[in-house]
Computed example of a mutant assay.
Amino acid sequence: MGSSLDSSLDHVVLVNNAKRALERGRFELTYQPIYSVDNREVDSVETLLRWRVAPGRLAVAQDFRSVFRDPMLSLSIRDFVLSTTLRQAARWRAEGHDMGRISVNATAFDLCAGDFALRLTDMVQGFGLAPDMLEIEVAEPAFYGPLAKPVSLALEALHYCGFSLAMDNFGATHAGLAALRNHSFRRLKIDHSLMRSALTNAVDKAIVRHVIALGHDLGMIVTAAGVENEDQMEIAVQLGFDSVQGFFVCVPKEAELLPRVCHVLNLQGRSA
């Protein structure tokens, strides 16, 4: 989109526009498959937030990330994402589609606002679903920000309630490594920039290889996110990633298209 919405609009105007957009149903969810390299099938899917800013024009979350600094709006968007995702998961199940786990991103503020684990448990049960079908994804920077301690407590509560946990944007910082030691993450996603640099930088390639080994030693699924071309796919397979996600595998899809897309990916994997 060129410059992001954050930089092209005053923050107050952007927040007000986002509030109206949420009220008018202009926030939408798309879903991106996460593909298992070993099993050659869709492992799970990730929910991705989009804002329809104009007909035929969708903005991705990083283009309007500053709206999440508004506490009330951030919580309203969080609840919209969760309720819409769970409603869709229940619909897929009723239609006989097994999408595996569904991953949902949560900010540090999302995790720390109120009793997130109990609220989410109530929401999941309200749709007749089980907590372990939902994977809560938190980015590594949440563990070295001012909310690091409350984030850790929230993750402990989520794990206790039966939810799966994933760490996103892992860059092997001290705080990220400490979080791996202290929490039972099911999935580890390597930072996009580290993956890109591993293509041309031998040191970064070695770091990624050791991070994958660490993840495996801790019993985690290690995922390469942001795989956008054949070169990145080849190095992901070469380095030993368990699963991949990105435009090279599949662009994010609307809910009604996803079962068919996943079926085709699974057929292609079995015939390969």
Rank of each mutant, 00 (worst) to 15 (best):
L194Y: 00
M195E: 02
M195T: 04
M195H: 01
M195F: 11
R196C: 05
R196E: 13
L199E: 12
T200P: 01
N201S: 10
N201D: 15
A202C: 07
A202K: 13
D204W: 03
D204G: 15
D204V: 00
D204K: 15
K205M: 13
A206N: 12
A206T: 08
A206E: 12
V208C: 08
R209C: 07
V211Q: 07
V211A: 09
I212T: 04
A213Y: 08
A213M: 13
A213V: 10
L214W: 06
H216Q: 14
H216M: 06
D217F: 06
D217L: 09
L218C: 03
L218Q: 09
L218D: 04
L218H: 05
M220Q: 13
M220K: 08
I221M: 11
I221C: 12
I221F: 03
V222I: 10
V222E: 02
T223W: 03
A225T: 13
G226D: 03
G226Y: 06
G226I: 02
V227W: 03
N229K: 01
E230N: 11
E230T: 12
E230G: 00
D231V: 10
M233D: 07
E234P: 04
I235A: 01
A236Q: 04
A236C: 08
A236P: 02
V237E: 12
Q238P: 00
L239E: 04
L239G: 03
G240H: 08
G240L: 11
G240P: 09
D242E: 11
S243F: 03
S243K: 09
